[in-house]
Design a protein around this nucleic acid. Structure first.
Lengths: 219, 219
DNA sequence: CAAGAACCGTACCGTACGGTACGCAAAGGA
DNA sequence: TCCTTTGCGTACCGTACGGTACGGTTCTTG
């Protein structure tokens, strides 16, 4: 036994390679393309190994979610002194990143998979996906807006509520539409800009300039 | 041939009863519970009739969506003179109705079904669900905010954009969370109130009272 | 009344999946 | 060098699904 095996919820490189193939199959062909036989063939491993490593199919799906989440690490950049323009830039960057993540092939495929499974009673995939997939991005946004509040640039009582407002302004029904097969936005940056303008109008402490308000109302 | 059969995209009462059973099976047990054999047993019909009426499984699913959409009719109440309070009431009613619809058993089940199918290439269920399921509610909201604009109570250039803002403020990520299996909100009315307050702050022409703004920022 | 259509219940077929078992090769430790 | 572990490839099993075929029954229609 390796000395550092205790704190490893991760997998071996070989298992990661298999999970990578599993994600590829899922993205390319949907849930029906992700069969144990197909994965064993694509990853050059045996079905027996799959069941030994992941238990059963649900365990495999959970491992795929954990693996994908382990690949995403948000860069924490604390310290930097906040002005209203810096805050706006950070919020817009967050919005663009959020839209890019939600529109990603793997994200859409995993969300479709978990949603499809969530009809079964007692499937923990949905909870798992929300926890693993959203925790990083939620933390980043919450830290940002709480920092903005401490700097006197934002005003709200409930940070959760304010964050949900920001999320709704950025995403609207776009996520569900993409899950249903519609193409994404033509210009994520423009949507990010509009959403942040609206958020600052609602929760910013400094009065929005007439220009900014006009630009927002103008589209 | 009946004289009025030309404009009938609907189904016979018998077929509607079968589709009702199909929706029941889907809601109770998810997609895996909706099998042709199971439906034939539950609806006391033969599999042969199912294939005769709906073609194949995808046709059955499409018929279920069309049938469910045919049950929902939004009440058009034009004319009524708009004041800011009446507009606010109508917007809040719309928000509550939207949240109630999205949280409905059948809506969630159909959305899960269409999202699960949307991974397959060339599945038209997603587009169908968006068109049939959202058209009514979209029309109602668009008519309302355009009426508000004509009455001088709202200000925006692009009605689509304003509507998406309203939608995002009302729903945020709640729809996806519910699709993933999370329970809905405890208080839809409160969420509706908050969303409409924010929307009027962004797009209303009358200044929000300090009370309203405080209540909004306060949660 | 008779002919035909619609339809129910059941049986049937091919397929493909999840999961298990086995034989054999390669790697690693003593 | 030998032995144990790991894992690959394949074959296998039970099951359940989508879709089809058929005999019998009810209802319509001329």
């Amino acid at each position: 036994m390796k000395p550092d095996a205790a704190d490893m919820p991760e997998f071996t490189p070989r298992q990661n390679a298999v999970l990578e193939q599993a994600l590829r199959l899922l993205v390319e062909g949907g849930e029906k393309a992700l069969t144990t036989s197909g994965l064993a063939r694509a990853a050059n491993c045996s079905k027996e190994s799959l069941y030994k490593w992941f238990g059963d199919r649900e365990g495999l799906l959970a491992a795929m979610i954990a693996y994908q989440a382990s690949k995403v690490r948000t860069h924490e950049r604390p310290g930097e002194r906040l002005t209203v323009d810096v805050l706006r830039d950070h919020l817009e960057l967050f919005a663009r990143d959020l839209l890019a993540v939600l529109a990603g092939d793997v994200s859409l495929a995993l969300n479709r998979l978990a949603i499809g499974q969530s009809s079964r009673e007692g499937s923990k995939l949905g909870k798992l996906l929300l926890e693993h997939g959203r925790r990083q991005i939620d933390r980043r946004a919450m830290a940002l807006i709480e920092q903005g509040k401490r700097a006197g640039l934002l005003r709200f009582d409930n940070a959760d509520s304010a964050y949900h407002t920001l999320y709704g302004l950025i995403v609207s029904d776009l996520h569900v539409r993409m899950l249903l097969g519609e193409p994404g936005l033509k210009d994520n940056a423009r949507q990010a800009e509009r959403a942040v303008d609206a958020f600052l109008t609602l929760h910013g402490t400094q009065k929005q300039s007439a220009d900014a308000l006009g630009a927002f109302a103008g589209r």
